[in-house]
Amino acid sequence: MRFAYYPGCTIGTTAIEFGLSTDAVCEALGVELVELEDWNCCGASSAHSLDHELSLRLPARNVALAQGTGLDVVTSCPACYQHVLAADLRLREDKAWRREMEEMLGFTYDGQERTRHLLEVLSTPELIEKVRQRTTHPLKGLRVVSYYGCVLVRPPEITGWDDPEHPVRMDLLMEAIGAEVVDWSYKVDCCGASLALSRSDVVITLSTRLAQAAKDAGADVIACACGMCQINLDTRQALEEKVPVLYFTELMGIAFGLPGVEKWLKKHTVDPRPVLRERGILP
């Protein structure tokens, strides 16, 4: 199984443990990721906040890079995912714009390469079975809530591969690695990450509410699939006893008994290791 890989800007920096765990888990599952040559930033919420055209052009270049590879593109960042999909949709539907982009970026759009999110790719029935087989250290007794955040599942007409209100694909993965999935009502509530720096008052309120809701549900940790959500929840929850926030790939890595887990977990602001030890998952 081979994919072109568009990691997104945070993977090398604030979400470095997401990138490392993604690499390790994919390797363990035989999913080969071929990084797109010379990818650029998708512009994230800043581009669509200030200039609609730019917000489509920046991700269009990444679509261009994937053309001709014959590989579907996997990205681990939900914002990148949403923006690349929006650009791809416009390339598909707006012929004049497609020509303009093709000319500007020197490529030919063939529309064969679909863009998918890492969670979508890893939670197919086939791979879930593989995950189950590969699990050597099941996360028994670890109570996990799945947190999808906003743009992974919305707007459904662009990103929709799971239910926009009650998505379950991360839950299925968590079950497959032996964790105890705890139901809660905040799976798709936004954490406000795009205001993390400019209006930290707002994101502290939202992140704290989410962390508190996870605790109220009885969760030990929050599993997430977005670099923005993770750093936001990890650094902005204003609780006395904080809830660790882990990437779903990190939890998979632990369950697979992969080397290097310690290195990822050290990167967290809220250290997840105490609770993992308490549950007998880490030595």
């Binding site: 990818w39 650029n40 930033c41 512009g43 919420s45 800043s46 581009a47 200030l50 400019s198 209006r199």
Partner: peptide, 19 residues
């Protein structure tokens, strides 16, 4: 503050291609 962040973000991409 919101505007300043968006501007800085876009400037960074223009300068480096990534943030």
């Amino acid at each position: 503050s919101v505007y300043a962040l968006h501007r800085s973000f876009l400037d960074s991409i223009r300068l480096w291609g990534r943030v």
